[in-house]
């Protein structure tokens, strides 16, 4: 199946990878050079590249790829092109955990607080496994947990001092500067494994395109599948949000773009979304770093604005004329 550019799926995927590598190379090389260069020379550049920019690049790759794939799977299992992992309430509970962590242990990165809080979310879902029959029950639970978490968070913000609040705000805008190399190196294999497990289920995801009844008659236990996907998404998104704060829009945009340039089969859509997600986050982070020199803004800010513009663009497209 060829796309508009008359490339086969393999070639398209390869082109995307090459684009990612190019952008990443440029990212590592671009940046402010100051007087230290003249004194230290190449050694300085290598230090900056390896110790500052490379870990950050790895973070953008891993987090971008994960968010994109989780977004794709959310859209599939909730049968909605606008679904994203946020509907499960993970971002909100992770934010609450992060705030509590900042409040109680200001010097520690909020990773563990955020991660623990978002994992606690999994327990209500596990309870729901026995009784849930419809998709909407999962969505309701996600919205409920998200709402309650946001409410508690707002209350805590209300009673906290400005220093804590500003630290939390710093975290919540979605930034990759603060990603800790150690936690990243533990999280990366976990996230890669989750993406790989999902990729192996590409046929089941394809069958879900036409509804639960068709998938069920073609041999998929839809209820079990949905639950296992929700659990995987929850763990993966909990990790990414705890690492870099809530980053929006990649989960929505990357799968959409993948569906335009690749055939509608998840064996291609999953890796393509991953690469496109990594590409978008890397570009956003680089722009965020360089656009307002000497200040650095957060990647999350850029994504919000660009994401909003993308939605306006989506409104004009023909495939939005039909209901899903």
């Amino acid at each position: 199946m060829k796309n508009i550019l008359q490339l086969s799926p393999k070639s398209t995927l390869l082109s995307l990878l090459i684009a990612l590598l190019l952008i990443s190379l440029i990212t590592i090389l671009l940046g402010p050079v100051n007087q230290l260069l003249q004194i230290q020379g190449i050694h300085y550049i290598v230090t900056v590249a390896l110790q500052l920019r490379l870990p950050r690049l790895m973070a953008t790759w891993v987090i971008g790829a994960t968010l994109a794939v989780m977004g794709l799977v959310s859209q599939r299992i909730f049968h909605n092109r606008l679904a994203s992992p946020d509907v499960l309430g993970i971002s909100s509970s992770a934010s609450l955990g992060a705030f509590i962590s900042i409040l109680l242990y200001p010097t520690m990165p909020p990773f563990w607080g955020a991660f623990t809080a978002s994992l606690l979310l999994l327990f209500p879902f596990l309870l729901l496994i026995q009784t849930a029959h419809t998709t909407i029950q999962f969505l309701l639970l996600g919205v409920a947990v998200g709402s309650i978490s946001s409410g508690i968070l707002a209350f805590l913000i209300n009673i906290s001092d400005t220093h804590t609040i500003s630290q939390y705000l710093f975290w919540s805008l979605g930034s990759l500067q603060v990603v800790d190399w150690k936690t990243l190196s533990i999280s990366t294999p976990i996230l890669m494994i989750i993406i790989f497990i999902i990729w192996r289920q590409h046929q089941a995801l394809d069958l879900l395109l036409f509804g639960d009844i068709w998938a069920e008659t073609r041999g998929i236990h839809v209820k079990h599948f949905r639950i296992s996907m929700i659990l995987l998404i929850s763990i993966a998104v909990a990790l990414t949000v705890s690492l870099a704060g809530p980053i929006g829009f990649i989960a929505l945009i990357a799968p959409h773009i993948a569906k335009i340039i690749l055939p509608h089969q998840h064996v291609w859509l999953i890796p393509a979304s991953a690469v496109i997600g990594a590409l978008i986050l890397t570009m956003s982070d680089t722009l965020a770093r360089l656009l307002f020199l000497p200040y650095e803004i957060k990647a999350g800010i850029l994504l919000n604005i660009l994401g909003g513009l993308y939605f306006i663009f989506l409104l004009t497209r023909r495939n939005m004329w039909y209901d899903d």
Partner: peptide, 29 residues
């Protein structure tokens, strides 16, 4: 379930979902 799927196929009347794919992709799935 997979063995059953090889023996029996069902066309149900309520198809709520109308994914945005071309007919050829559906048939060659």
């Amino acid at each position: 379930a997979l063995e059953r799927a090889k023996m029996i196929s069902l066309l149900a009347p309520q198809w709520e979902l109308k994914p945005h794919i071309r007919v050829q992709e559906i048939l060659t799935h």
